[in-house]
Design a protein around this nucleic acid. Structure first.
Length: 286
DNA sequence: CATATGTCCTGTATGC
DNA sequence: TGCATACAGGACATAT
């Protein structure tokens, strides 16, 4: 569920409610939630306790909480169904509560990682000189990062022998884009998801990047996208961008540009939504 | 039974 | 033939 806008909403919540607090205790309730921490749950717990959390950062769909004066950070990925919630310590445990982080202050709240499918998780890693956790060095800058290199992205697209939606979802080319925002940006650009990237012109790439940025910023301004209570901010509240989606989930509904019924195709274990008239498939594609 | 918003691993193909 | 690289497809866990 969570793509860049949803993760950024969570990051902002953590900045407000968790930054600068000192960890008192950590409880790992499900080993799969810390599987990326190779040394195990006990090691994860002991290394965090007693340290102060800095200002949360994000790249693409990854976010991390620096641990001051350790050169390390708690890295989080929400996977398909993960949530980071700030809850009253007295609140009953969620059904899929996986990790609990308590603080040494009297604020009465704690940080909880809740995840139905446990595709996501937390782990602790050394940070490199730029503050990035070392294990996400392969993740490209995201399109809202001021240092994202539009021209390098275009050249990378031209080099690839793949199709445009695959490229948008390739986190080593551009990070933060998932299935929903890929379909939205492609609809706005009037490009079919199976269009080969090798033929992209510089203006076409620039237009696509512009739409990726626009749709993400619009989603961010209304708190992200959520179809049910699965995606929420740290206070458990849903965003409203689902009301503004033009492509995703609109199979059979009229295209908001031309009125043609929107189509859905199975694609990589999920779905691609597009307008069959505005987004013509390339040759030999259905 | 089909579907699910992500990432990573593995097998295969390709080219030097 | 050996090796490196790029790419596509599937595994992962659980719910609706």
């Amino acid at each position: 569920m969570p793509e860049l806008p949803e993760v950024e909403v969570v990051r902002r919540g953590l900045e407000r409610w968790v930054a600068h607090r000192v960890v008192a205790g950590v409880e790992v309730l499900h080993p799969r939630a810390v599987r990326r921490h190779v040394a195990g749950g006990d090691d994860f717990t002991h290394r965090i306790e007693g340290h102060r959390i800095g200002v949360p950062s994000r790249r693409g769909k990854y976010l991390w909480l620096p641990l001051e004066e350790t050169g390390q950070a708690i890295l989080a990925h929400l996977g398909m169904s993960g949530q980071l919630l700030v809850q009253p310590v007295t609140a009953p445990a969620e059904k899929h509560l996986r990790i609990r982080v308590g603080f040494d202050d009297g604020l009465g709240t704690e940080l909880r990682f809740v995840d139905q499918r446990t595709f996501g998780g937390l782990s602790l890693h050394d940070t490199t000189s730029d503050g990035l956790p070392d294990v996400i060095g392969h993740i490209a800058r995201d399109p809202l990062d001021p240092l994202f290199d539009d021209d390098a992205f275009h050249r990378a697209l031209r080099r690839k022998r793949t199709t445009v939606k695959r490229a948008l979802l390739d986190q080593s080319l551009i990070s933060g884009v998932g299935n929903i925002y890929a379909d939205e940006a492609l609809w706005r650009t009037r490009v079919h998801y199976e269009r080969p990237t090798a033929g992209f012109t510089a203006p076409r790439t620039a237009e696509l990047l512009g739409h990726v940025r626009d749709v993400m910023n619009e989603a961010l301004s209304v708190g992200g996208t959520s179809f049910d209570s699965l995606y929420v901010n740290v206070n458990g509240e849903s965003g409203y961008f689902d009301r503004s989606l033009d492509a995703y989930g609109r199979e059979g509904l009229p295209c908001r540009r031309c009125g043609t019924p929107m189509a859905r195709r199975p694609w990589m274990n999920r779905s691609s939504y597009f307008c069959p008239r505005c987004q013509r498939p390339p040759r030999a594609s259905s």
